[in-house]
Amino acid sequence: MLTTQPHLRVRRPSPTTVEYTISTSPTLTLPLRLLLVTTIILRLLVGFSILLLLYSKYLLSNFAPDSSTRGLPPAAFLSYDYIAYVLGQIHTSRAGVLSTRLATLTPYSLLLPLSFLVLHILLRRPHTTESLLVLRGLGIQTSTSSASYLSSATTRFIPTEKVQDILVNEAFRGFEVRYYLVVVVEGEEEVVVVFPRLLPRRVIVEKVWRGVRGCLWEKGKEDRVVSGGKG
Score class of each variant (00 low, 15 high):
135 L>Q: 10
39 T>D: 15
162 K>E: 15
28 L>D: 03
14 S>E: 11
196 P>S: 10
125 R>G: 05
221 K>R: 13
208 V>T: 08
29 T>A: 04
201 R>G: 03
73 P>C: 06
5 Q>M: 14
86 V>D: 00
92 T>W: 00
131 S>T: 10
179 Y>C: 04
78 L>C: 05
154 T>L: 10
187 G>A: 10
195 F>Y: 13
190 E>N: 11
91 H>R: 09
3 T>A: 06
25 S>R: 15
93 S>F: 07
164 Q>A: 11
49 S>R: 02
106 T>P: 08
128 T>L: 03
220 G>T: 11
36 L>A: 01
183 V>P: 05
202 R>E: 05
110 L>W: 13
43 R>T: 08
228 G>A: 06
156 R>A: 12
172 F>Y: 07
163 V>F: 07
79 S>M: 14
63 F>L: 15
136 R>Q: 14
137 G>N: 13
34 L>P: 02
1 M>T: 07
72 L>P: 04
202 R>N: 02
215 C>L: 11
120 H>T: 15
45 L>W: 12
122 L>W: 12
217 W>G: 13
209 W>V: 07
86 V>T: 07
23 S>T: 15
154 T>N: 13
230 K>M: 09
22 I>A: 05
76 A>Q: 12
202 R>C: 03
125 R>I: 00
215 C>Q: 12
140 I>L: 15
214 G>P: 08
85 Y>K: 10
219 K>H: 09
14 S>Y: 03
124 R>F: 04
101 R>W: 09
16 T>E: 13
137 G>A: 08
220 G>C: 11
208 V>I: 13
34 L>K: 03
153 A>Y: 04
71 G>A: 12
190 E>Q: 12
80 Y>H: 14
109 S>K: 02
166 I>T: 09
9 R>T: 14
197 R>M: 10
151 S>D: 02
169 N>Y: 07
216 L>S: 10
61 S>T: 02
82 Y>P: 01
158 I>D: 05
50 I>L: 14
173 R>V: 07
163 V>D: 03
49 S>N: 02
185 V>Y: 03
212 V>I: 11
124 R>Q: 14
154 T>P: 00
62 N>W: 03
6 P>E: 04
130 E>T: 05
15 P>E: 00
29 T>K: 04
40 I>H: 07
112 L>D: 02
142 T>V: 13
85 Y>F: 12
183 V>L: 04
102 L>Q: 12
116 F>D: 04
107 P>D: 00
228 G>Q: 02
162 K>V: 07
66 D>G: 10
57 K>L: 05
76 A>W: 15
82 Y>Q: 07
27 T>S: 02
222 E>Q: 12
75 A>K: 15
119 L>G: 12
9 R>C: 12
13 P>V: 10
171 A>H: 08
215 C>H: 03
67 S>W: 05
116 F>S: 15
101 R>K: 11
22 I>W: 04
68 S>Q: 01
40 I>W: 03
201 R>Q: 06
132 L>Q: 06
164 Q>N: 11
92 T>L: 01
48 F>P: 03
220 G>V: 10
196 P>R: 11
41 I>F: 08
92 T>P: 00
64 A>G: 00
154 T>S: 14
61 S>R: 01
10 V>I: 15
13 P>E: 07
140 I>N: 02
